[in-house]
Amino acid sequence: MNQINELFTNVQIDLSGLPEAEQMEMIPLEPAYKTVRYISAALVAVVFLLGSWIFALSQPDLFPYGLIVAGLMTLISAWIVMYAGIAFDYKGYAVREKDITYKSGWLWKSMTTVPFNRVQHCDLRQGILDRRFNLSKLTIYTAGGQSTDLMIPGLLPDTAEKLKIFILKSTEQSIEEE
């Protein structure tokens, strides 16, 4: 167990000198995105609430159980809306010279990094709510498939455009170097 912090034994490079992704300064998303998250969570919550309460009240023969389920659904709905706000504070991205990272998650934390020389293409998208709040969503595609695509929501359209141009330029450069 003494080598637990060593990645491999025949080191060719100084592992401690590697750029550490953990020490990056994360850029938070636009505050307006928090409102967008609240609204979309509220929409889901309303559907849940309406569905469960209509079900509970229209099936009186299920008497205590229907209400229990509806009560649970109410709690879950409240949690969904609250969580949208909490989760926002944990979302962020960071751009380094050669890669881009997005992290998210309050309890289940996750962090994805895509090197620029693996980017296939990127696109900018705006949903209905995004347009209303003047936000953009940047998606970065790699050849690794859907699960590896990096999606950064809640960017100002201007920032998103700049980021996209920067990424595509870096990608081109790295390919030319190859």
């Binding site: 998650g105 309890l107 934390k109 996750s110 994805t112 895509v114 090197p115 693996r118 050849a143 590896t148």
Partner: peptide, 10 residues
Amino acid sequence: VQSVHIESSP
């Protein structure tokens, strides 16, 4: 490798 992802639960 195309991308690296790490995640952790509480």
